[in-house]
Simulated assay, not measured.
Amino acid sequence: MDVPFLLSKAQMRRIEPFFPLSHGIPRVDDRRVVSGIVYVIKHGLMWRDAPKGYGPHKTIYNRFIRWSRLGVFNRIFAELAGKAGEPDRIMIDATHLKAHRTAASLFKRGALPRRIGRTKGGLNSKLHAVRDGEGRPIMMLLTEGQMSDHKGALLLFPSLPRAKELLADKGYDSDWFREALIDQGITPCIPPRSNRKVQHPYDAQLYKQRHKIENVFGRIKDWRRVATRYDRCAHTFMSAISIAATMCYWL
């Protein structure tokens, strides 16, 4: 089979338990089709431009859409990340993802939220993420581009692991967030804003480790269908992000 990329058998053994059961006619080879999905997302191709070795592009596209609706790719990421155990140190940050015109064309239509918002940079989405001490993503949340870092942190807070320390930039410097972390036994390492009346102390040496979360965003954005959002539906775009994070860090 002439394909430019193929998941290894070891990688397939780790993700196969999360695939839906096949009913009736056996499915087309999972390894070939999932490899085709990964290749298209990484290189930012249109589905019809997928290499012929992966089979009909309609099969690849339909499998991606169907499993995205079932939450298969999000579940794979969550389960593999969860097997790493509770981290002692976590980091939180957010980044903007530009929405292509094909994704923004249905901006105000449809019953389900698109998670596309308007900022000075145009239409975009925002990815909020929590990383462990090694810089590996363990939680991700997709919101509209105009949502503040604080609101994203509020949505993620109930699911934060019980770590000893949390690193974040000045965008997360607020009394409620600091107090909530301390109540959970988490020591915040957040530089205070310059206009604060009370300048909270923080470990400047430890804060230097925060570059790891920026490295993660850069690595995930190397996947072209993540750096630029082509998917109209939020669940399909979130599946693309989950696939990129899983392939980069957990497989």
Results as ranks from 00 to 15, higher is better:
M91C: 10
D93C: 05
D93G: 06
T95M: 01
T95S: 12
L97V: 07
A99F: 06
R101C: 05
R101Q: 11
A103K: 02
A104T: 00
S105N: 10
S105W: 10
L106F: 14
F107N: 05
F107Y: 09
K108E: 14
R109C: 11
R109M: 12
A111R: 06
L112F: 11
L112T: 04
L112E: 14
R115Q: 12
I116R: 03
I116K: 04
G117V: 02
T119Y: 13
G121Y: 06
G121D: 07
G122R: 01
G122Y: 15
L123W: 04
L123P: 04
L123S: 05
L123G: 02
K126V: 00
H128F: 15
V130D: 01
G133Q: 02
E134R: 04
G135T: 01
G135R: 00
P137C: 05
I138H: 00
M139Q: 08
M139G: 03
M139L: 15
M140D: 01
M140A: 06
T143V: 03
E144S: 10
E144P: 07
E144G: 10
G145T: 03
Q146G: 03
Q146P: 03
S148V: 08
H150P: 04
H150T: 09
G152L: 02
L154N: 01
L154Q: 06
L155D: 07
L156A: 09
F157Q: 08
S159Y: 13
S159K: 13
L160W: 15
L160N: 08
P161C: 05
P161E: 05
R162W: 03
R162H: 12
R162N: 09
A163D: 04
K164E: 15
L167R: 00
D169M: 10
D169A: 12
K170R: 15
G171M: 07
D173F: 13
D173C: 10
S174W: 05
S174G: 13
D175E: 15
R178G: 06
E179G: 07
A180R: 14
A180F: 15
A180M: 13
I182E: 14
I182A: 09
D183T: 08
Q184A: 12
Q184P: 08
G185M: 12
G185S: 11
T187L: 14
P188R: 08
P188A: 09
P188H: 13
C189T: 06
I190N: 04
I190M: 06
P191M: 06
P191A: 06
P192W: 13
R193K: 15
N195L: 11
N195P: 14
N195E: 08
N195W: 13
N195S: 13
R196K: 13
R196Y: 11
V198A: 09
Q199L: 15
H200Y: 15
D203R: 04
A204N: 09
A204W: 11
A204V: 14
Q205I: 14
L206G: 11
Y207F: 14
K208T: 11
